[in-house]
Simulated scan of single mutants.
Amino acid sequence: MDRVILSEPIGTEGYMDPEIEKSKGVTYKTDIYSFGVVLFEILCGRKAFIHHEANRFIAPLAKYHYENKTLQDIIHPDLRNQMSSKSLKKYSDIAYSCLKKERAHRPNMDYIVAELENALKFELRYENLVRPFLLSFSSYFSYSIIHCFR
């Protein structure tokens, strides 16, 4: 449904769809924008709005870095180092699509859920490929260290 509900702009700073100001109305795509902000909060490990910071809002910061292919500069290092590149790409693509300026260009929630599930599948495949190697390597490494100090 693309029904618009007219309302005064009300919301939490950092999560509000910029289109509310222009249209004075909200649709379900307004919530999609806010969800995209949450996805980037998770990815970057920071709040949507930080009052005393130059880049106070995460949404324009994330869009800037996504569009300039420098998203790795703001992704939380623990996630960046642990996620597969395929999963990270899929996740960031869907998060970015939620922040599209034009509401009509934002995906619907069914699509978002399906794409996030795909990102999870990529990640699980990656972990199944990498983890056995890492476990065997760490076991070998631990065994070597223990025997070196005997």
Rank of each mutant, 00 (worst) to 15 (best):
V113A: 09
L116F: 07
E123T: 04
L116M: 13
Y66M: 06
E123L: 00
I50A: 10
S7R: 12
R106E: 04
L88F: 05
R56C: 08
E53M: 12
I58L: 13
F141Y: 14
E102C: 08
D78N: 10
P60V: 08
K69S: 11
E127G: 00
H76L: 10
I50D: 13
F122E: 02
E117M: 00
S142V: 12
I145T: 10
R103W: 03
T12K: 02
I94N: 05
K47M: 14
P9S: 08
K100W: 00
E67Q: 15
L129N: 07
G25V: 08
H147Y: 11
E19A: 14
K121H: 12
Y96D: 03
L71R: 03
V37Q: 03
F141H: 13
T70Q: 13
A59R: 04
H147I: 00
L134V: 09
F137A: 15
F40K: 03
R80F: 13
P9L: 04
P18G: 07
P107T: 06
I75P: 00
A48K: 04
E117Q: 12
L129G: 02
I20D: 03
Q82W: 09
E13C: 15
I32F: 04
E21H: 15
Y91F: 15
M16Y: 02
A114Q: 11
L99D: 05
R150F: 10
H147R: 09
F149V: 14
G36K: 07
Y91S: 00
G36E: 03
E127W: 02
F57P: 03
M109L: 13
L129H: 12
T30I: 01
P77L: 13
V113P: 04
I145L: 10
T12W: 05
Y111D: 02
F35R: 00
K89Q: 09
N108C: 01
I75L: 12
S92P: 07
A48D: 04
R56K: 14
S138V: 05
I58W: 05
A54T: 15
F137K: 09
Y143F: 15
S136H: 09
A119P: 01
A119I: 06
S138N: 12
R150S: 03
Y28T: 14
K100H: 10
E21R: 11
Y111P: 00
Y143H: 14
K63S: 14
N108R: 07
D17T: 07
D78A: 08
D2V: 02
Y91C: 03
E117L: 05
D73F: 12
S97V: 10
S7H: 08
S84T: 07
L124C: 11
D93M: 15
V113N: 01
H147A: 00
I10Y: 11
K29I: 01
S144A: 14
F35D: 06
S136L: 07
K101F: 11
T12M: 06
K22Q: 12
N118D: 06
Y33W: 15
S142N: 13
Y126W: 05
L71V: 11
G14I: 04
I42E: 15
L99N: 00
H52V: 09
P9K: 05
S139C: 11
A48V: 06
L88H: 03
K101E: 10
L129S: 06
I75T: 06
A48P: 05
N68M: 13
K24P: 02
P77A: 13
I146F: 10
V4M: 06
L61P: 07
N108E: 11
I10A: 14
S85M: 10
L129R: 12
V38F: 06
F133T: 10
K29T: 04
I42R: 15
S138M: 01
